[in-house]
């Protein structure tokens, strides 16, 4: 457990004092520091919020943006929704797989980049659209796809 997590837990509880509403915000904040939620982290969060460990585990496992395994520093989500598929999202995914030498769902061996499918990202006007660390990029053409791999991103 990092020393600042206790303060973060207090802040989350202060903002969302009722029920277990502090849980999701706290998981977000800790994951943004740790990049993923390890079993130890889940246990720490349970202690901080006085919740059973299996409860925290069951909540964290429900949501696709909480990662239970290590992910890359740069997470690329390619939207695979219908509007994106009609505009070439699958070709884009294959292009990125080729460039990175990994399959969708995997992380590069150096731990830098994870390539993930996203269900509809609600940005169909930008199809095919992707997110780099949850920042929208689109429409992505094969020429601009490399920007997903190397362009500057905010965390």
């Amino acid at each position: 457990m990092k020393p600042e997590w206790e303060l973060w837990a207090q802040e989350a509880k202060a903002e969302f004092p009722k029920a277990n509403s502090a849980l999701l915000p706290l998981l977000h904040r800790i994951q943004s520091q740790e990049h993923y939620l390890s079993e130890d982290t889940i246990r720490d969060v349970a202690v901080l919020l006085k919740l059973p460990v299996p409860y925290v585990e069951s909540v964290a496992s429900f949501y696709s943006l909480y990662y239970k395994n290590p992910v890359g520093k740069r997470i690329i989500h390619v939207c695979m929704g219908l509007s994106c598929a009609l505009n070439g999202s699958d070709e884009l995914m294959h292009h990125l797989e080729g460039k990175l030498g990994i399959q969708e769902g995997q992380t590069t061996p150096d731990g830098e980049v994870s390539l993930l499918e996203a269900e509809c990202l609600a940005a169909c006007n930008l199809a095919p659209v992707a997110q780099v660390n949850l920042r929208f990029v689109g429409p992505v053409t094969e020429d601009t796809a490399d920007q997903l791999l190397t362009g500057e991103v905010k965390s």
């Binding site: 277990n20 509403s21 998981l27």
Partner: peptide, 20 residues
């Protein structure tokens, strides 16, 4: 945190209460 079903109003309320 990533779940289409949370657009359904009662699932949304569950999520807002810190549940699945």
């Amino acid at each position: 945190a990533g779940a289409y079903i949370c657009g359904e109003e009662s699932a949304l309320l569950e999520s807002l209460e810190g549940k699945r």
